[in-house]
Design a protein around this nucleic acid. Structure first.
Lengths: 190, 190
DNA sequence: CCGTTTTTTTGATAAATGTCAATGGAGATG
DNA sequence: CATCTCCATTGACATTTATCAAAAAAACGG
């Protein structure tokens, strides 16, 4: 499973064979069955996690028991609770697998140490953070300025793959609407 | 006006006198009157901008003429259109002053060059990006999981200063609701 | 293949929020 | 001081979205 990660890394920046070995040395593989938790609210998240197969989600559960999905992650995406990772505080979010999945884990301390030693890795992290920032900004903008139907249309445009793989009630949760509303929107769509 | 920026920088990381001079050498001051544009939709944004006095907003205007405010920035905040800055494409957003303001500008090429030479500056940028990422994630979570009233309550908690300085119809826009809705929420608040 | 669970859809109704039009106040400006 | 613009509020009403309950459809597990 490391090969997919290696391929991803090489597509993003130039790594020497030795650097790649260093990375592999600290990477562990975790297989998750559908519905299995990678992180549960209240635990502390101490990894960087790369999805090499499958699909996961980050979500919270409110006082009424309703779930609110913050992010999805499929192959070649990273996932985790940066808030908990950075603060060392218990996570406010859950992460679980939507499909049977494989994630690669690197413990924070080791990842940070590697970033010091491997400039390409540090650059990759910075670029990733930068792109994520812009993506989140777009999501905020869409969320505050469009109707439910428009949000769904944009979601289809931006993430056609998510729309194919992910149950609709989860898409609805991600978009901040109920599953009934999304169902009715779809009915009225072309 | 550079002194305020210097103070901010020193509060975030350790800079040598020479590094500080290098930064000052590329910094220009721009004074803006209330309502004056710092960036207009369609222009390309090529700066990093630090607010040393006043208050500004980033917003878009939709096809119906409605404004949607993406961010506010007061003293010691950065502002700009990262999307345009990174891509070199025309900005989708406007930035203008809500109060008479002073911003410090550093051209992108010079800023990037300084980041190469001054590790503390690069670190500051990374830390800032990291914090912004988390802040945006919180905003997304709030937006998709709370009612209009709850969003306003959380806004008051998180940004009491904004609530004091910024006209209510702009707060409403930032929260993704109409000014009438916000007015009614406030009436029903304790 | 059958029973079970999950997911999606539908209908009836309620609640939240938006739209439009009007008003009054506060502050800026000449 | 008079005028003007911006801002906040209010009321009436329309629209959007949520809620609750139920059923149909699809996916899953043994």
């Amino acid at each position: 499973m490391f090969e997919l990660f290696e391929k991803y890394l090489r597509s993003k920046a130039a790594f020497t064979a030795e650097e790649m070995q260093q990375i592999e040395a600290v990477t562990t593989i975790k297989r998750l069955r559908k519905r299995q938790f990678l992180l549960q609210e209240g635990e502390v998240w101490t990894y960087n996690a790369f999805v090499s197969k499958g699909c996961l989600r980050t979500y919270s559960v409110d006082t009424k028991g309703a779930e609110h999905i913050l992010t999805f992650a499929v192959e070649n995406w990273w996932i985790g609770d940066l808030q908990s990772l950075a603060s060392g505080l218990p996570a406010r979010f859950n992460i679980d697998a939507i499909e049977d999945s494989v994630v690669l884990l690197i413990r924070k301390e080791e990842f940070d140490r590697l970033c010091q030693v491997i400039p390409a890795l540090q650059q990759l992290v910075n670029a990733l953070l930068h792109r994520s920032f812009l993506a989140q900004q777009n999501r905020i903008h869409t969320t505050i300025s469009h109707s439910a139907e428009e949000k769904y249309r944009l979601f289809l445009q931006n993430f056609p793959e998510f729309a194919r793989r992910i149950p609709q009630h989860m898409v609805a949760s991600y978009l901040g609407m109920t599953t009934e509303t999304l169902s009715r929107i779809r009915r009225n769509l072309v």
